[in-house]
Design a protein around this nucleic acid. Sequence first.
DNA 1: CGACACAAGTTGCGTAAACAACCATAACCA
DNA 2: TGGTTATGGTTGTTTACGCAACTTGTGTCG
Lengths: 147, 147
Amino acid sequence: MLDQDLVSQEYFYNFLTGKYSIAVMRRLQRNLKEAGLSITSEQWSIMYNLWVEEGLTQQELAIRTFRDKPSVTRLINNLERLNLVIRVNDKNDRRSNLIYLTKIGRKMKEEGMKQANNTIEQALGGLTDDQIALSHTTLHRVLFNLK
Amino acid sequence: MLDQDLVSQEYFYNFLTGKYSIAVMRRLQRNLKEAGLSITSEQWSIMYNLWVEEGLTQQELAIRTFRDKPSVTRLINNLERLNLVIRVNDKNDRRSNLIYLTKIGRKMKEEGMKQANNTIEQALGGLTDDQIALSHTTLHRVLFNLK
DNA sequence: CGACACAAGTTGCGTAAACAACCATAACCA
DNA sequence: TGGTTATGGTTGTTTACGCAACTTGTGTCG
């Protein structure tokens, strides 16, 4: 491969190294902070899934956030320390923890989603609905390919 | 915002939480490992920029990889320990370090780029050139918006 | 029933991240 | 020229990640 190919394919390599994603997550982090929510974007991703559905197992959260089990264990540890979620041992399968939001965690939903939507608007500004929809298809395929 | 909106907009929130990027970077990591290259995907992103152009400052590497200065400092530390790069103090501006590849680092280019291209092929399999080009436009805009 | 595979979660270790504070050198400009 | 500002890099702290190894509890099947 020639050097000029390296450069012309820069987009692909930016994708490989997470450049786009770093940009988006950093902005989300900043927006959350400015809104007075002291959670990280990673913690947000757990909270988001619980806002959609409570009582998920850590395993299920790992799948939905595409993180591994140890990462989820530690994210839940930190969220529990912040009094945003609690672990409830599953009576039917004592291996599992079911994760529930606390009152504070539930109350955070409104502002948390607002900042998420802000971030998305900032990221996608100037793009048409068609462009966005097509990228959706593409990224969905990427996830399917790599799963 | 209603709960069903949460779900229908799932794509956006996956983007926010870096789900796509995690998938790609993890695959790159795996491909590198299977090819016998013991570097992380983050280290790869530094090496890639040096394969394109040697003698960059850490500041310039930070901009090109969209990472902050401390991250680059530590990535270079680790790459130096692996004997893949060296810091050379700039005679003209003694604040700067110019980063050069070692022989080993240069030799790694071929296999490193091969695995990167493998990863991209795996990620984009089944997508048309048009789809890919459009996503390129979209992601480029995202970066522009958030820069 | 009991051995064995499997699944959920945790812990250990090395690496990487953001942010803030800091040092050294260079550039600016009054 | 001398003080202020800006820039390149490092260090400290907390958080997060990936992988491997481990514990505990469930399911399976001879």
